[in-house]
């Protein structure tokens, strides 16, 4: 009996350390980060659920003609963004009107999409699955395909204890994978943990960042999750009114969610419409206030940022420290199939 309690404590400690290890792919809470917005009680994460969600994420079966998977527009090495077009394309080569954003640290997001229309990660995947410019499918069709697939039926039975796969099971499995995409091991993070130091140029860039950018791209998530106009003006052909499409309010016209800058080096193109292909073009946009078109957020108006070319280079160096190679190359997030 006297050995039972220490043994139990040891097993518990092992279990906890297993749960929080970044290497196994499951969600973990980095030190010093805020409390996640995601309610894990609605969808407890399990290793099997994570694997099932990963299999669905990489399976084109979710699209109407089984040609496009989630991963078609969200590639791991590009921070789960889509880099070969300004805006992503889906089935039948149809092109959407927004740049597929990178997927990481989604547990902290209070809402999703560039306009913030979707409030919870559990329901988010309905949009890409059913959007005619993305996967173009229907939930009925997806359920039919999955329910007649014995491998998936077995996997869903294992995770959700269900004989019949239903909508909520698909969405929750996908969320178990996507909520686990935590990126918190960049050079910036290592510097914060005092494991290494920035170069002089990176440090200069960081100082500039704190002065000019941090108000909206707030540490440690590098976004404040607010909706802002960044001065690029409306796209010449895409009719995208942004946040006002959701709220119906004039003041929200042409505002979009502030994106995270984590892994920004790899998640080109930039802006909601993928207008800029290079990070230095984005920095140059913010560094040259005279080029801004209306509307512009009050923060940007007040700051009236002006940077010389050395400062632009320093800022670029700092932004590259947000690259998390351990995340981009983590094989536990890579292609996976149940078959």
């Amino acid at each position: 009996m006297k050995y039972l309690i220490p043994l139990w404590l040891l097993l518990s400690a092992l279990l906890v350390s297993w749960e929080v290890s970044p290497e196994d792919g499951l969600f973990y809470q980095p030190d010093g980060w805020p409390k996640p917005s995601y309610n894990f009680e609605t969808n407890p994460i399990s290793h099997e659920g994570f694997l099932l969600g990963k299999a669905l994420f990489y399976d084109p079966l979710l699209s109407k003609d089984s040609t496009v998977s989630c991963a078609s527009c969200h590639l791991q090495y590009t921070a789960f963004a889509h880099v070969d077009h300004p805006t992503s394309h889906g089935v039948d080569s149809r092109v959407g009107k927004r740049n597929a954003p990178g997927l990481m640290n989604l547990a902290w997001y209070p809402y999703f999409h560039w306009d913030g229309g979707v409030l919870g990660l559990n329901g988010q995947a309905i949009n890409p699955i059913t959007h005619p410019d993305e996967m173009g499918s229907t939930l009925e069709d997806v359920l039919k395909k999955l329910n007649r697939n014995p491998t998936y039926r077995k996997a869903f039975q294992n995770v959700f204890k269900t004989d019949e796969i239903k909508t909520q099971h698909i969405l929750k499995a996908l969320a178990q994978f996507t909520v686990s995409l935590v990126s918190a091991n960049s050079k910036y993070d290592q510097m914060k943990r005092k494991e290494l130091a920035f170069s002089d140029q990176e440090q200069r860039g960081y100082t500039l960042f704190l002065r000019h950018c941090n108000q909206c791209h707030t540490e440690p998530l590098f976004t404040n999750f607010k909706f802002k106009s960044n001065g690029i003006g409306p796209h010449p052909t895409l009719k995208d009114e942004g946040r006002s499409a959701i709220t119906g309010k004039e003041k929200d016209a042409l505002t979009f969610r502030v994106p995270t800058l984590r892994n920004v080096e790899h998640s080109f193109p930039y802006m909601h419409d993928g207008r800029y292909g290079k990070l230095k073009e984005v920095i140059h946009h913010y560094a040259t206030a005279s080029m801004w078109k209306l509307p512009v957020s009050s923060e940007l108006k007040k700051k009236n940022i002006s940077l010389n070319s050395d400062e632009e280079k320093a800022l670029l160096s700092f932004l590259k420290t947000l690259t998390d190679k351990a995340f981009l190359l983590n094989s536990t997030f890579g292609y996976f199939s149940l078959k």
Binding site: N39, T42, Y111, H113, G117, V118, L119, G120, N122, G123, I126, N127, T130, H131, L139, E140, L143, K166, T167, Q168, L171, K172, I246
Partner: peptide
């Protein structure tokens, strides 16, 4: 509307979920 229940009358399969908007 926003609680995230996706079963019963809230199942998006019924065709009543907006999708572009929660």
């Amino acid at each position: 509307n926003t609680q995230g229940r996706l079963d019963g009358p809230f199942d998006p399969l019924l065709g009543m979920y907006w999708a572009w908007n929660t």
